[in-house]
Each structure stands twice: as C-alpha cells, then as structure tokens.
Design a protein around this nucleic acid. Structure first.
Lengths: 201, 201
DNA sequence: GTCTATAAGGTGATAGAC
DNA sequence: GTCTATCACCTTATAGAC
C-alpha cells in the first residue's frame, strides 16, 4: 500500500466514526502510522482530505437508486430491491447514515452541491410512483412522501443506533441484531401495506 | 429578565442550532449581550450549561409518550395522539430531532443516562402494542419495530430537512411546508395500514 | 455581578533539515 | 517523501480590578 492509500484508509475510518469536526488530523496520522506534516503534504488541507472521503462514500449510496434508471422500471421490483440493497449495504457500513446525516446538517450547501454531482435519479423514481398512483394499484400518495417514508424506515435504526440498542434492548448486542434481521424480512410488507399495495408472491 | 435567564435563552438558541461542539461560548455571550467571563461565573463550564439546556429540551419530548401511562391505554388513540402531538411540537421546534440525534451520537453514554432519568414509559407502550397483536386486531409485529417505525416516520423529515427541502423541492420553502402539512394528515393512515389495522372513523 | 486581560491547552498548517 | 520543530490561531476557563 502506498502512503497515500494508507492515509485514505485511516481518514475513512476516523472521519466516518467522528465526523469532520470531531476528527483530529493527529488521529488520522496515528492511524496511518505517519505524522501530521505528511498528511498536509499529500492533501494540503483537512477540508480537501474530507471531501475525497465524503465523495467516495456517496458512491456507495448511489447503486440502491439505480434500478429506477431503467426505461420502464417496475415499482414493486424497485421497492424490494431498494430496501434489500440498502439494508445489505448497511450490514457492512452501519455508520453510513449517521455520517451522512451529520455532514448534511453541518454544511447543507456543500452537501446539496455534492448530491447534484451524484445525479441520483429522483425524477425517475417520482414518475414511477406517480404512474402507480395513476393506475390505482396503490392508494394516492405523493411520490416525495413515499420516498421519504422508505428512506426513513430504512435508515432511522442506524441513525439512532444508541437509542435502539442501549435503551430498547438494554445494550444487548444480540437482541439488537435480531431486531435488525427481523426488520430486514418485514419492512417491505409494512411499506407495501402502508400504501395499500397487494404484494405479489 | 435576570442575567441568568438571558444566558439560558441565548444558550438554548445557539446550542440547539449548532450542537455542543459547534457552539462557541463567545457566541452565547454575544447573543445574551454579556461577556464570556459572566457565563462561567453563572454556569462554571460549557458542559454544565449544555446539560441544563439538554435536560430542559428532553422535558418537551416526554408528554407525547405519557398517554401510554394510563391504566388501560387505547392503542388507536395513543397512536393518533402520539403522531399529532409530536408533529405539533415539531411545528414549533423543528430543529429538535436534529439536535437530539446529534447529541445522541456525540456522547451515547451521557444520552442514555439522561434518558433513564426521564422515565419514558417504553414498557407500557410495548405492552399496549403486544396486547393488540395478541387480540389480532393488527398483524403480528414486535412492539420495538412498531415504535421505531412510528418515530422514524415522524422525525426523519426534520432530521434530513436540508435533503427534503433543498433537493426534493429545490429550496422551495412553500412546497416544503405543503409537504409537511400533507404529511400530518396522512401519516397515521400509512402507519395503521402498515400493520393492517382498520382505522375506525 | 460585571468587566478586561490573560493564562493554558489544543488545532491546522508550514518551514526547513535530511 | 518523510521527519521534527514551530507558528498562528482559536477556545475554554480563570485572575483580578471595579
């Protein structure tokens, strides 16, 4: 591994865990086994290093939306794939929603600018849902409401991890993971029921 | 207003907007129209001042849960009151969920300790939901899943305000508020549908 | 109680030797 | 490229005059 890669690995770990403000350049240096000066030699500023990590993390979120890019996406397939794809991603990267939300709120403008570069196909998803409403296969609901419901139900347990794990399950790790895996099986049903869609099996 | 009250008003504003780490004692002093030294004279440390504000904010969250304390709480009435009560609170204090989540993640241990002092009746709510599952008036769902769904759907649009307002609605303030008021009317239906409960009108 | 001045510690960033 | 040493700045907190 080159020094640059070592730095990126270390920065990813620390930034994701502690956010931009909570991160110390010294900690990244320690984690990478080098000194502070070298960080600045490679990436000039903390801000520049952070942006590289943040952009990279965003790439991970994108694929979950990509089904909607098909010319004639199927609503049910999209929804199932979205939920499953996202929850699988969160098995690997459970701190991702917390990180994204934290940075969204720290500097909304920069976040929005970055989102726009990512070209997430919200319009395509909106149209797909609206078609379903028009066909009356689901109860009338604004596409935005549906998308927010979907994202909220998926990511909230990760954003509020400490609340769920420590308070609902008394810090019982096993019970918490049981909760997450139970959720994975049943979330789609809750969502489809919520809008009156009869899930085909 | 006494100086102490002026400080508390200023601290409330700045802490809630910027979180603990984002807040500067100097900014609170400016906001209160006094100087830094006086802040420390009244509250000794930033941490102590913050805890006072945080505890106080938590008191606002509590009443929404209190209906479940009745000897025989009605599930439907509780759910409706919870959603409506919470959303009304958020009309006044829209930054509250963002603040709470931010501080939850900054120091989960302190957060949990504080929650325990608040005596929120999660057990009572759990039992109420479980009774409904046993009566088969709703589809089987773990009480924890239901509570998390409820909270997630209520607070997420506020936690991710910038995402919803700036990206979904192109920074259109009116469209965003229309979204929130539309949500207030329809969220309960979505939730009741989600668990197969037939809402009585 | 309220102020000014300053201490004490930490942080991002750079200079300069190797 | 990599290091040590250090600068310049900021932040919480306190000392001490009034």
């Amino acid at each position: 591994m080159t020094t640059e890669e070592q730095i990126l690995v270390a920065a990813r770990k620390v930034f994701i865990e502690k956010g931009f403000e909570g991160t110390r350049m010294q900690e990244i240096a320690n984690e990478a086994g080098i000194n502070k000066a070298l960080l600045h030699y490679y990436f000039r500023t903390k801000e520049k290093l952070f942006e590289q990590i943040f952009t990279e993390v965003f790439q991970k979120i994108k694929p979950a939306f990509s089904n909607a890019l098909h010319p004639d996406p199927d609503f049910q397939a999209f929804t199932n794939a979205f939920i499953e794809g996202y929850l699988n991603l969160l098995d690997e990267l459970p701190f991702l929603p917390r990180f994204v939300i934290q940075e969204l709120n720290r500097d909304p403008k920069r976040f929005v600018a970055l989102m726009e570069k990512q070209e997430i196909p919200f319009d395509s998803i909106r149209q797909m849902i609206q078609r379903e409403v028009d066909k009356k296969t689901i109860q009338p609901i604004a596409a935005e409401q549906f998308i927010i419901n979907l994202i909220a139900l998926i990511v909230f347990p990760y954003i509020a991890q400490a609340l769920v794990k420590d308070i609902f399950f008394n810090k019982n790790e096993a019970a918490y993971h049981e909760f997450l895996s139970d959720r994975k099986q049943k979330l789609a049903d809750f969502v489809f029921n919520g809008i009156g869609f009869k899930k085909a099996f």
